[in-house]
Amino acid sequence: MADDLGASPDVVQLRFRSDEPVDHAAVTVDAAIEQSNATAVRIEPGDDARLLLPVLERLALIEINFPAFTDGRGYSAARILREAGYKGELRAVGDFGVDQLSHLVRCGFDSFAPDRRLDEADACRALATWAHVYQPAADRIMSGRRTIAELRHDG
């Protein structure tokens, strides 16, 4: 049980999924690979998200931890997982605020368990900041969002 990262489930404040939340405690990346029954995993900033690619099929929840909001490795990890076809819940956990939300969503996160509760009005406003985007990210994979350049040329 040493790999178990915590008994209490995260306090998920925002979730953009219709399926039932997974309430299993997440295990480390190493444990998730070794334990064939693990369905929830937590990625730390220094972990290589690609190690999970062979076992993505059985994972229902991947948490990506942000110990400090200024450490942006989790954004790459998230996109890599979505690019590899991961369809399960991708939860941002830790130190982030409303000003990181739109980028997190664009990189493929669909559930949020912040350390500090977000002001709901501020969060709604932040999520609506960008009517359009310049570059493709996981939002193209998740929802077919088209970039400004594509809109310019395909109408």
């Binding site: 954004y75 980028h103 990189c107 570059q135």
Partner: peptide, 10 residues
Amino acid sequence: WSSFHPEFSY
């Protein structure tokens, strides 16, 4: 491409 890049802002 680089403006408001969601992966490369931190």
